[in-house]
Structure formats: structure tokens, C-alpha cells
Design a protein around this nucleic acid. Structure first.
Length: 689
RNA sequence: GGUGAGGUAGCUCAGCUGGUUAGAGCACGGCACUCAUAAUGCCGGGGUCGAGGGUUCGAGUCCCUCUCUCACCA
């Protein structure tokens, strides 16, 4: 092995306005597997992360819930840490960007930037909500696209025609916060002079700091020339106030990556590590960032430039990965494919998902699909059928016939050597983040092990007492092959590896422990290391959650509040109650209500409450829905009527077909159902709001 | 729209700098086995490698055009 490397590794910071979902878990698993691999190899590797806690969305969410931003992020932090710990993500430190440590690093770096002449002040004209008394980020202004006239578009770009513009270009703009038209105000902003780093960044990018595909992509940004970066926001804003500028705050994207360093500072404070050993300009430590491809710009341009300007080293590498899709579709709350880590963990062991992700993760930025059927078969086949089976089929002979004692020599040292040799390629694959390749190789070895046992047939030999030694030898060989595989898989399956160590009565594994077989020692009785997945249960991950009898449960662990005191607890309880009833305008706008025209209405045989309706929903095309209104309406009388439907309700499979929406109606049921209809003039497809 | 990635067996993918009859796992069919969590082993069916053109003695692998999918756009 090469010399001992010292490295600092990060995952992107999860935003503190919602729960950890499987998309983030993908990133955390990729990073964690890599980190655990490095540690297993004997390198000095630290993994830090933090919650990303600042910015307008958090401020508004806290407002909507009637709590302070601090209370909100403390609550979320507890949940995030718990979810990620349960996913076996082994952070060396998980902090928050809203920490004293981070504030100190931010201010220190900013002052160096300022004194180095990298900060410039400019006046900016920006949308201002006079009602809410705040400046509006682009995404908080909506209006009609100035290019294609599509309604309801964000202030930065049009989802329909893709053109980009500023909020000032929108026709009939309104503030998402108050619903009133914004006014335009001048304000002084602080800019980081990114443009002056163009050359050195270009060099850095080409030095191998990013994947080849990413470098080509960045080429585009370089060719357009780098624009300076607005790092300030006006009050009210939840964040850190800029030291020499009262009422001005650091933009969340300025203090977020610095959050890596704030977290490192915390780690240093409780260990004997030194910050400068990792960050000084001449540091020989490695710095690796794992991120999603959506935040490349921040990590490959802003961040290295800021580090350089602050007199620090730049990242060794930024590793971007693709997005997670579920059953081939984007994660979406309305489709039920927005799966939180907590939801997954309620039913399944963390290592199953870790294994599945690892088996599909490559070094590129391709998206990765979580196909639930494949997940089931893959786990059952690879882990239970192949891997664990090796130990399971060998252990019995040793335990029953040989008092748990393994043989003193391997009958097939060449086969064992083959497994050891394969470790080189597997390590190389892990190192280059081709974990899919590593898993492929490992599973090929698992096949070899099963083939060997099948060929030797210890169960047949065991029928003749004189073959006892041979049976012991064969099973010792099998178990040792299994042991090698578990060492190789420890970065992915830390708990299963720990259980295997217990089985072999070993304390600790390093990568090189695979080189020498375990001979003449005793083993513990074999206990199942993994059980099979049930496809039906897995499918439930994307089905609507069972209705909860109790309102959303309060967090079990009380948040540690900065201020403390009973009033906090009380206001939180009040907030929770309010949360149950009130929704923000944003939440309401997520419900896509549309005017629809009934094209046809039919009785459904076998269902005495349902009618099958065929609807014209204008630009959304025709839909088929099932509505429980048969007791109140005659199908013929419905045809031609205009109604209101929820257009983005997830399709629901019923016994009679799929219902692609829901019509709005009032009343207790039976004969007393009253369908809502718009006044004349409304046309199918119009949005109701 | 711009840019990037990709279209290889039913599914998920591997095929390095072009070179013998294109591979693996899962799924499917058959046989064997019964130590193992209906696990395992052996055999088999199945692909004109998105389409067309070009370079070459030879292309899934290089070039061009087209087409489809996906992603990103401070």
C-alpha cells in the first residue's frame, strides 16, 4: 500500500427545511462508502457535514409555522442527525451552518477577501414586497413569461420555453409571499470578484479536480466568461450579518460551503486535529467534496475561488453524482415517490439500500434509478442467496462436527490467493468511486465460492466419518472466502461486517487482513446475517402512507434550544398545532386545480357508488377518473358539464381502472353530493386559484 | 433554446487505446443437488450493439448526419 494519506471529505449540506429523503441518502451513502473504504485502508480520513440553515425559505417556513428560525433548524437538525445515523452514515462531525464556529470562519474569510480587494459594492435593483417588507429572491416572484406568455412562471426562468430573465422582465409580477405586486428598489450589494479568478480556476479544473464530463461542462461557463457573484442579502434575512455592513447578510450560498469548515472547526475542537493542517495554502492533506450535479457551479467555481482568495488551499477534487429517480420517475411528492429516509427505515435495514446504491453507483454523473422490483431481487439474490449463503452452508459442519474449530490449513490455497489478488482491482474501483465495479467483482467471487462448495460437496463426504477432516477443510476454505468478501464489503455493509467479525471472533478488520486466512481458530455459531425482502412490502414504499390516527407526532427528542426555557416548548407546541391547520400559499399552489369538461360518464359494473368520467382538461389532455357520485347524479345529466378537478393528484389504481384525478364536490354522501362547477365562460384546462 | 450524457439480450448494466463465433447478473426454460434463509450448481433460448452513411484488411468500439431519452443552465 502507498503511504498514509490524510484527507477531509464532505457531503453537500442538506437544507434544513425538510426531512432527509432518499436522494440525499444516495449522496451520503456514496460519500460514506468512500470514507469507510479509506479508513479500512488505514488512511487518516475525516468526514464532516452540517445542516444548511440560512436563507429566505427557512425564514418564511419558520414564520409560517410560528416559530423562530433557530427553533425550526434545531428541530430539523435533530431529525437529520438521527436519520443519517440510522442510515449508518459515519460522520466524524455533523454541525450546522448556524453555529458560532461557522460564523467565526465566515467573518474571518470575508475580512481577508475584503482586505485583499476581492469584494466590490454595487447598487442592485431588486423586487421588494412592500406588504411583507422584504426583498424578494427571484424564485419568490411569479408572473407571465415575457417570451412565451406562459402564466405562473418564476422570476428567473420559464419552465415552458426555458428562457432566462430577471423578475423585472415578468409581465404582471406578483410576490409569492404576500400575493401583491412587487415594487422595485435599489439596494447596495456586496459582490465577490469571481471574474478575476477565471484563469486560475480554468487551470484548477483541468488539473483533474473534476470528472472529465464535468470539465467539459464547465468549459461552457468559462467560454461565457465568469460573472461576479452577489454574496449579500438585505434584512430581513436569516443568516449572518456581514461584519462591516449592518443590515446586510451573507447570502446562504456564501456561508454554506464555509459550513464544511465550521464543522471541521468543531471536529478540531474536540480532537487534536489542526484546522490549518487541512486548509493552509500549502496543506498536503486532501480535500474531497461529494455533491449532486445541480450544485456544480458553486463547488467548482465560487468555492475554489473563495478559498484561494482567502489564502487557503483549493479542493483536491469535487465529485459530482447524478440524481435519484424512483421507478424511473423523478422523486415527486404527488406521485408518492418522495420517499424519506425515515419512511424507508421504518420497514427496512439501512444496509439493503446502501448495498443497492453501491451496486449501481459509478464515477459519472448519470442519474441512478431505484427500481423497487430490482431492489428486491438484487438484495435477495446477491446478499442472501450468494453472499450470506456461503457462510450459512459451511458453518453448520464446523459447528456440529468439529466443535466450532476451523482447520489448520486451506485445501485450496490457490483459490484463496485468487480472492486476495482480486482485492487489488476492487480497491482500485472503490478508490475511483466505481463502487458498481467493485460490487460486480465481489459478487463474481461469491459465485466462485459457491461453485467451489458445490464441486466439493461436503454434505456427501460428511456421510462417511473418515472424511471428517476433509469436510472441515472444505468448510474452512468456504468460510475464509466469505471472510475476504465481507472485508471487501465492510465499507458498504458495516453492520453485517461487524456481525461477521463476531462470528469469526475477530475484533477489527483492515483491508490487509484479507491477505491471510484465519486458520485453526474457533468460530461462533452462525446466526442469519440478512433475511429476504418481500416484494409486496417493498412496493408499499411508494404507496400512500396509512392514515395516521394521531396528528403528526412531535419529535421524541426535544430540540436543544440555544435560549432554553419553558416558553420555547410552549411556542413549539403551539406551532405544531398551527402547523396542523394552516398551510402556506406555496403549499396551496402545489394543488393543481383545473376546470374540466365532462366528455362522458358511465356506470361502473360491480361498483354501486362509482361513475367513470372522461374529462377534457384542456392543455392537460383528457383524463379518466372515478368519482363516488353515482347515488346523486345520473350519468347522462353530467355530460357536457364543467367541473373542478385536482389535476396533480397521484393516479390511483382501483379495481376498475386507474383514476387520474379527483373532482371536487361537497356533501355528506349518498344522495347529498353537490358537484362544484365554475361560472360560464370558464374553459377546460384553466387553473383554479 | 444552449450545453452535456446516453441509446448493447425482457430488466440493470460491462465491453480498456478498433481485431477471433458480442458478455455478466436478474428474469425465463430444462436438468442436477439437498449443506444452506424455496438457497446452490450445470446446460439452454434470447441481441442485424437506436437509424443511415463513411474511414479501415477489419467497428458496438473512430468520423458525419439523423432520431429518441435523460440531465444541467449561476
Amino acid at each position: 500500500m502507498t503511504e498514509r494519506r490524510r484527507m477531509l471529505v464532505t457531503s453537500a449540506l442538506p437544507y434544513a427545511n425538510g426531512p432527509i429523503h432518499l436522494g440525499y441518502v444516495l449522496e451520503a451513502v456514496q460519500t460514506d462508502v468512500w470514507v469507510r473504504f479509506q479508513k479500512l485502508r488505514g488512511h487518516e480520513c475525516y468526514y464532516v457535514c452540517a445542516d444548511d440553515t440560512h436563507g429566505t425559505p427557512i425564514m418564511l417556513k419558520a414564520q409560517a409555522e410560528g416559530v423562530t428560525p433557530e427553533q425550526l433548524i434545531d428541530l430539523v437538525n435533530v431529525e437529520h442527525q438521527r436519520d443519517l445515523a440510522d442510515m449508518l452514515i459515519g460522520f466524524d462531525n455533523f454541525g450546522s451552518t448556524h453555529s458560532a464556529e461557522n460564523k467565526a470562519v465566515c467573518e474571518r474569510m470575508y475580512l481577508i477577501l475584503r482586505d485583499g480587494g476581492h469584494i466590490e459594492r454595487r447598487s442592485v435593483r431588486q423586487a421588494y414586497d412592500d406588504d411583507a417588507k422584504m426583498f424578494l429572491p427571484d424564485r419568490y416572484v411569479k408572473g407571465i413569461c415575457p417570451v412565451c406568455a406562459t402564466a405562473d412562471q418564476y422570476g428567473d426562468s420559464c419552465e415552458h420555453c426555458g428562457s432566462t430573465y430577471t423578475p423585472a422582465d415578468l409581465k404582471s409580477p406578483i410576490s409569492v409571499v404576500s400575493g401583491t405586486p412587487p415594487v422595485w428598489r435599489e439596494s447596495e450589494h456586496y459582490f465577490f470578484r469571481l471574474s478575476s479568478f477565471e484563469q486560475s480556476l480554468n487551470k484548477w479544473v483541468k488539473s483533474g479536480a473534476v470528472q472529465a464530463g464535468v470539465a467539459r461542462k464547465l468549459e461552457e461557463w468559462f467560454s461565457q466568461g465568469l460573472r461576479d457573484w452577489d454574496i449579500s442579502r438585505d434584512s430581513p434575512y436569516f443568516g449572518f450579518e456581514i461584519p462591516d455592513a449592518p443590515g446586510k447578510y451573507f447570502y446562504v450560498w456564501f456561508d454554506a460551503p464555509i459550513g464544511y469548515l465550521g464543522s471541521l472547526t468543531q471536529l478540531c475542537a474536540r480532537t487534536n486535529l489542526k484546522f490549518d493542517d487541512f486548509l493552509a495554502a500549502d496543506s498536503t492533506a486532501e480535500l474531497h467534496h461529494f455533491i449532486g450535479k445541480d450544485i456544480l457551479y458553486f463547488h467548482t467555481l465560487f468555492w475554489p475561488a473563495v478559498l484561494q482568495a482567502a489564502g487557503m488551499r483549493r479542493p483536491t477534487a469535487v465529485h459530482a453524482h447524478g440524481f435519484l429517480t424512483i421507478n424511473g420517475q423523478k422523486m415527486s411528492k404527488s406521485r408518492g415517490t418522495f420517499i424519506t429516509a425515515r419512511r424507508y427505515l421504518q420497514s427496512f435495514p439501512p444496509e439493503y439500500l446502501r448495498y443497492y446504491f453501491a451496486a449501481k453507483l459509478g464515477p459519472g454523473i448519470d442519474d441512478l434509478d431505484l427500481n423497487l422490483d430490482e431492489f428486491t431481487t438484487r438484495l435477495n439474490s446477491d446478499i442472501v442467496g450468494k453472499l450470506v449463503n456461503i457462510a450459512s452452508r459451511c458453518a453448520g459442519f464446523i459447528t456440529k462436527n468439529h466443535a466450532g474449530s476451523m482447520a489448520r490449513a486451506l485445501p485450496e490455497p490457490a483459490l484463496y490467493a485468487e480472492f486476495v489478488t482480486a482485492g487489488k482491482a476492487i480497491a482500485e474501483a472503490y478508490e475511483t468511486r466505481d463502487t458498481a465495479g467493485a460490487i460486480r467483482d465481489i459478487m463474481a467471487l461469491a459465485d466462485r465460492a459457491n461453485q467451489y462448495i458445490d464441486l466439493k460437496k461436503p454434505w456427501t463426504l460428511a456421510k462417511q466419518p473418515e472424511n471428517a477432516a476433509e469436510v472441515q477443510a472444505i468448510c474452512t476454505q468456504g468460510l475464509n472466502l466469505f471472510r475476504v468478501l465481507m472485508i471487501y464489503l465492510q465499507p458498504v455493509l458495516p453492520v453485517m461486517a461487524a456481525k461477521s467479525r463476531h462470528f469469526f471472533r475477530e475484533q477489527n478488520w483492515t483491508w490487509t487482513d484479507a491477505a491471510a486466512p484465519l486458520l485453526g481458530t474457533a468460530i461462533n455459531p452462525y446466526e442469519p446475517l440478512a433475511t429476504r425482502l418481500d416484494a409486496k412490502q417493498v412496493a408499499q414504499l411508494v404507496e400512500p402512507e396509512a392514515p395516521q390516527t394521531a396528528p403528526k407526532a412531535a419529535p421524541v427528542t426535544a430540540p436543544v434550544s440555544h435560549q432554553g426555557g419553558a416558553s420555547d416548548a410552549a411556542s413549539l407546541a403551539a406551532a405544531a398545532a398551527v402547523e396542523g391547520n394552516m398551510i402556506s400559499i406555496d403549499e396551496f399552489l402545489r394543488v393543481d386545480l383545473r376546470v374540466a369538461k365532462i366528455l362522458g360518464a358511465d356506470l361502473v359494473t360491480g361498483a354501486d357508488k362509482l361513475l367513470k368520467l372522461r374529462l377534457d382538461v384542456g392543455e392537460l389532455g383528457t383524463r379518466e377518473i372515478f368519482a363516488g357520485i353515482r347515488g346523486a347524479y345520473d350519468p347522462a345529466a353530467l355530460v357536457g358539464r364543467l367541473i373542478v378537478v385536482v389535476a396533480n393528484l397521484e393516479p390511483r389504481k382501483m379495481r376498475f381502472g386507474v383514476s387520474e384525478g379527483m373532482m371536487l364536490a361537497a356533501g355528506p354522501g349518498g344522495k347529498d353530493i353537490f358537484v362544484l362547477s365554475p361560472d360560464s365562460g370558464a374553459a377546460p384546462g384553466m387553473r383554479v386559484k
